[in-house]
Design a binder for these strands. Structure first.
Lengths: 146, 146
DNA sequence: GTAACTGCAAAACTTTTGCAACCAG
DNA sequence: CTGGTTGCAAAAGTTTTGCAGTTAC
């Protein structure tokens, strides 16, 4: 539903405007960068580095600002699996995460966590709604102790 | 399987020794503190504050050391739901977590994430094993915008 | 013109590290 | 004794804040 995949100059700007975000140079550039190619998991640092490498001039602070704005707007999804490191997932669709503890790599799996039968048993009460379900499966290579 | 619930002085010390941890003053004190009362979610800071309040003299660094050692030994479980904050869960049994985004509170629910049917569909390969499954359900109060 | 946005530097936090002093077995 | 532990201070790393300057409309 919320994806920026246009290649024309105007598509991205329009889309941002629809989300209530002014299409500034930095936001347009990051939106393009984040939607080029397939789905990825990026840290703020990754995004900053890629942006600079792509010739986009912008501040670290702005990267954080924009990533949070994009997350709030539904363009990204925040994933936290280790303290002190936030991943921004360009895949906002239903899926779960598999963390390879050996390599630290995070991988997507196409299963909808929101459809878990167990959620029906939760009995949370009428006044709360489920905003999100995050499933992280931690895996290790067998017998490889180090 | 790994729980320190003895009230006698020797039970805790013995248990720690069985886990390969020397029963130092700090470790014994924290082990007692963490197993008093029901299951809880504590940050390192929480543990430090409680310990000091209980008259236990120990350093912040030592709290981290011991919490990690206890986690490795299976006495605690680390839970990360927000960047820059690690919770230590005294409940090491199978359960999932419900995060109240309004209050930031984390609550346990007694369902075994490892028994999720979806895990059978994962097809991870023969060389990897599932070390842990973490399920966080984020909830919000309905319509209460602030 | 004006509110929204960006950039810079510094601050705020949590967690880790290095190393000397200390303690359990 | 001797290696495992602790404590302190400092470092490391990520994310946030305050505010002046800039930009979109």
């Amino acid at each position: 539903m919320a994806s920026i995949s246009e290649h024309e100059s105007d598509g991205v700007r329009e889309h941002l405007r629809e989300l209530g975000l002014r299409p500034t140079r930095q936001r347009v550039a990051l939106a393009r960068l984040l939607t080029a190619g397939g789905h990825r998991h990026l840290s703020a640092e990754d995004v900053y580095a890629e942006a600079r490498q792509a010739g986009i001039r912008l501040a670290y602070t702005t990267v954080y600002n924009i990533l949070h704005q994009f997350t709030a707007a539904g363009l990204l999804r925040e994933v936290v699996v280790e303290s002190g490191r936030t991943w921004f997932d360009t895949n906002t669709g239903p899926h779960l995460h598999v963390l390879d503890e050996d390599s630290g790599r995070l991988q997507d799996f196409a299963i909808d966590p929101k459809s878990l039968p167990l959620l029906k048993d939760l009995n949370l009460g009428d006044d709360v709604e489920i905003a999100d379900v995050e499933v992280v499966v931690r895996v290790r290579r067998r017998s490889a102790d180090k």
